[in-house]
Design a protein around this nucleic acid. Structure first.
Length: 592
RNA sequence: GGCCCCGUGGUGUAGCGGCCUAACAUGCCACCCUGUCAAGGUGGAGAUCGGCGGUUCGAAUCCGCUCGGGGUCGCCA
């Protein structure tokens, strides 16, 4: 090895040790006589001190520039009390080199490596190998490694085996758009990259593997978002002979351990609270509520049923709802805040955002004049508002109220500073309906995935004449701080039930055989009761690292535009490759 | 596909019709400097303002198109 010691690990106790270090020049302070070099390697940074008395080493240090690669042999010594740097992990010591070898010179980097300045992201991605040298970037990549390692060790210890599944699989038109890979052996046919190993892991269960997991790459050819990229990684896990509680208990133990070991803050609640889906929708308007703050919805429809205020009465007559959020002590909120919140409510689909500020004396509310004193008093009582509080109200169809008021709640949480730093608010959401009606396509669709099981008590709803929307499911979602971190279910384990669900979803027997024939056939040969989860690794790391951008937790991410500034992909390919694949490009497509 | 925002020396920003033959910080280069840790000091090099076209006596600054990037809705679990 060119080094026998890591820079970042040197401490006072190492004083007197002869060490060999190698790393990059993080910073250089050349006093002409004395030269200080901060030498950085993967472990951290340590200060070198070069004295003119050692002419060769001093000359090399004088010549060295930022990001040059050095090898140093020297002695560790304690710094004088006056020169100790308490801001550095290695600040009590420094290394006095006897030799300094320049292993490589370096061009001036296109952006700062030694300062956490916001640099144009495209430039960072283009020079990702330099970006990764930045300690704050590297930190997250190391965190990710440690978390995945923890997951593996946790599951190995509980008898899980890690099985790889193919990344060239069969395309199905369900769900997200597939990435396609043309087949050379069978021109005109395509593989798809998996959106998840769902079917394969079920087949593993049918194959007698009782405890499987995989850190699996998943692909979806859809537009990106801050927390969504074309390829992401999930902890894919499946177990045989379990019920819902078994899977949830296992995952909860795993995530509790991760939060305690790697979370920068505290777990809000453990064991994780459980929220019924309908309850979550009622109280937060979303199935992945952020439980770090309150501002729950209150249903205030009842006393307004016969109201003279048409906006309220009309909404109720049309089968809608009226819900409110009470904001403690903010009746004096600025006009600007209110306007912005109104705009947010509108973007969520609401026609407007009503409010009543319970200011002492006269109410602060453009709608108060349309409401009776009794109605206002009822709103006050139901919301628990007191003088000085503000109440926001949305009246509309349930889906609109949920969405608009959720956006308002989230914005209020942010703008009022109600979201505590470093808190991890995990929760389970259960009790999802099995199916939901898709008006556009005029058919039922699975809320989670079509293999999700259902309790016997729901069977009647799935029979002819029943209301499939009432069927319960064995689905569970893990949420944290308003993000869905994972979800899973106990699967259907017999052919008849699976066919029943597919049929309700509008798949003909032919379509079922074509798309899911393997699963249906396999279910006939003694499938065990089984279930599992798919849990997003990227989002988990985002939550732990406290970053808003999924690219921060991926070593070599694609840009938001879906391209890769580092490698320059995607690119056209040459005519010979296309020929082999039996592909012909449309004239409008750029040619290689 | 729609909407919003951004694009000025290596980097981050300022300038938003003539005072800009473009400013500031930092980085870079040279010299001085033995205790700094965002070292300090002196001097120097470095951008025609993403691209194209237009308006104007005059454009980094206004308009149109276009390219690149970011966010968001649609889409997506």
């Amino acid at each position: 090895m060119l080094k026998d010691t890591n820079c970042g690990e040197l401490r006072s106790a190492d004083s007197g040790r002869k060490v060999r270090l190698a790393g990059w020049v993080h910073r250089r302070r050349d006093h002409g006589g004395l030269i200080f070099i901060d030498l950085r390697d993967a472990s951290g940074i340590v200060q070198l001190v070069l004295n003119p008395e050692n002419a060769a080493a001093h000359a090399a240090a004088h010549r060295a520039r930022i990001e040059w690669v050095l090898q140093v042999e020297g002695e560790v010594r304690n710094r004088d009390a006056a020169t100790v740097n308490p801001n550095m992990a290695t600040g009590e010591v420094e290394v006095v080199p006897t030799t300094v070898s320049i292993l490589n010179e370096a061009a001036t980097p296109p952006f700062y490596i030694n300062e956490p300045v916001d640099v144009d992201e495209n430039l960072r991605l283009k020079f990702r190998y330099l970006d990764l040298r930045r300690p704050e970037v590297a930190r997250v990549i190391y965190l990710r490694h440690e978390v995945v390692r923890h997951i593996r060790e946790f599951l190995y210890a509980r008898g899980f085996i890690e099985v790889e599944t193919p990344t060239l699989i069969k395309s199905t038109p369900e769900g997200a758009r597939d990435f396609l890979v043309p087949s050379r052996m069978r021109p005109g046919s395509f593989f798809a990259l998996p959106q998840s190993p769902q079917i394969l892991k079920q087949l593993l269960m049918y194959g007698g593997v009782e405890k499987y997991f995989q850190i699996a790459r998943c692909y979806r050819d859809e537009d990106t978002r801050a927390n969504r990229v074309a390829e992401h990684t999930q902890l894919d896990l499946e177990m045989a002979f379990v019920d819902q509680e078994d899977v949830m208990a296992l995952i909860e133990e795993l995530y509790t351990g991760i939060a305690q070991k790697f979370g920068s803050g505290s777990l809000l609640q453990a064991p994780f609270p459980r929220i019924d889906y309908q309850d979550a929708m009622n109280r937060y308007g979303i199935d992945r509520p952020d439980l770090r703050f309150g501002l729950e919805f209150v249903d205030i429809a009842e006393p307004l049923r016969g109201s003279g205020f048409q906006v309220f009465a009309g909404a109720l007559q049309a089968g809608g709802q009226i819900k409110a959020i009470r904001v403690l002590g903010r009746a004096d909120m600025t006009r600007r805040d209110i306007d912005e919140l109104t705009e947010i409510a509108r973007s969520g689909g609401a026609k407007g955002l009503a409010y009543i500020g319970f200011t002492p004396g006269e109410l602060r509310s453009p709608i108060a004049k349309f409401l009776s004193e009794t109605e206002i008093a009822s709103i006050k009582t139901l919301t628990g508002a007191e003088d000085g509080d503000m109440v926001f109200i949305v009246a509309d169809q349930p889906a609109v109220v949920a969405r608009a008021l959720h956006e308002v709640r989230t914005s209020l949480g942010q703008r009022l500073g109600l979201i505590p730093e470093g808190v991890l608010a995990f929760a389970w959401v259960t009790g999802f309906p099995l199916l939901e009606w898709h008006p556009d396509e005029q058919r039922w669709d699975a809320t989670h995935n079509p293999f999700c099981g259902f309790p016997e008590s729901s069977r009647e709803h799935l029979q002819p004449g029943g209301d499939p929307g009432k069927a319960a499911s064995f689905q569970y979602d893990l949420v944290c701080n308003g993000a869905e971190l994972g979800g899973g279910s106990i699967r259907i384990s017999n052919r008849a039930d699976q066919e029943l669900v597919f049929s309700l979803m509008g798949h003909s027997p032919e379509q079922q055989a074509d798309r899911f024939g393997v699963v249906l056939d396999a279910l006939e040969y003694g499938a065990p009761p089984e279930g599992g989860v798919g849990a997003g690794i990227d989002r988990l790391i985002m939550t732990l690292a406290g970053t808003e951008n999924i690219r921060d937790v991926i070593a070599f991410p694609k840009a938001s535009s879906g391209s890769d500034p580092l490698m320059g992909s995607p690119t056209p390919v040459d005519a010979g490759q296309l020929e082999e694949l039996g592909l012909l490009l449309k004239p409008s497509a750029p040619q290689a």
